[in-house]
Structure formats: structure tokens, C-alpha cells
Amino acid sequence: MIQLFHVLKKFGPNVALNDLNLRIRQGGFVFVSGPSGAGKTTLLRLIFGVDRPTSGHILINGINLNRVNRSRLDHLRRKIGFVFQDFKLLAKKTVFENVALALYVTGKGRTFIRKKTHQTLRSVGLSEKENAYPLQLSGGEQQRVAIARAIVKDPLILLADEPTGNLDPDLTEDIMVLFRSVHMKGTTVVVATHSRELLNDTEQRIILLNHGRIVGEK
């Protein structure tokens, strides 16, 4: 479960999030929407522990992020998958290596890593591209590698920042199918998007942000 209590986040004089209170249940599927600069990315980064709130508290499965040390935060991140807007793939590593990286850091055995990585890449439809390098792939394929890396460790929470930002409608639908299949396995999914098409077709919970505040919910 993700809980935010009176969260304020400032970058210098600029307020990115203002007195935000939010509760996302375990196994939920939530869209966070709003215009550019509304605070969507900041919210995801706070939940992921990349940034710390200026004030207020964030609890992930009961763990207060304000009170965890770096080592515990590293371990907590292994339970959270993050799909970055800019993919953050390593150009000098193959697709397989990029995905396997998320398992290497957990100290899992080589056989397990190989098996799990193959399986995950198959699930995102990239079995044939395992030995390719990110720059040899299309935007949609790179996005799927980023998703594979986020889900390979069977995370409790999956955060995705504008995962369909640069994709055409067909690829967008493919990506959403992937998220729904991950959600079906019990993972809490939080997707930040400003895509109206994506929100129009969904029956999932939508949180609307503007100027760092929740301005609506569907």
C-alpha cells in the first residue's frame, strides 16, 4: 500500500507538490494525470525514494521513507519497478544484460537470472532481440525493454512515468496490455500520463493533479 500524508515538495522557491494526501491500495491500478508541471513525475520520484519530501510522510507497505537509511532504501527499491520516461537503458549493454541487471543487484544465482530474464523478455515480445543493443531498437521496443527491466524482479509496485509518451496508438495499446497483465499478478501499478486517449478508455482510478495539488479523482 502507498500512503502520502500532507506531502510538500519544493525545489528552491518552486512548489512541486502541495499538501498532498493520497492512498493507493495494495494491488490497485491508478493513473496520475494532469498537464505538464502538475507534479506527476515528482510524485512518482517521491514514492520511489529518489527524492525526499520537504515535509510530510510517505509510507510504502508501512515503511516510512523519511526514516529509512540508504541501505534499506536500496532494498526497498528492489520491490519497486520504475519505467522511466527516457527509458534509462545502457547503450553498451545488450537487451538481455539491461534486463538482467535488475536481478544481478539482488545477488540471485546465474541460472535463475538467465531463466527469469528469458521468460520476461518473452512476455514483452522481445525474445528475438535479446542480443541487440538499445540503439538498434525502435522507440516502442526500447520502452518494452525498460518495462521488462522493471517487472523482471516481480515488483510489489510498478511506477511508470509517461510510458506511452512517444508511441503510436497500436504500440500504446501493447504497452497497456503489458501493464494490465502485470497488475493481474497482484502488482500495484501507478502510471503517470497526460494522454487523454489512454484515460478515456479506462475504468481504472484516475487522480488529477494540477499545480502540485489533487484537483479531481475518477
Binding site: 540508504r70 536500496d74 532494498h75 527499491r77 534509462k88 545502457l90 543487484v105 539482488t106
Partner: peptide, 16 residues
Amino acid sequence: RDEIEILKLVGATDRF
């Protein structure tokens, strides 16, 4: 530095 950042983002400890 990019690789280090990504390693940290996927949960690598400082020691790793």
C-alpha cells in the same frame, strides 16, 4: 555515471 545511476535505481547497494 549513467550506469551507476541506473544500478542505484534498480536497487543496487552502495557496496555493489
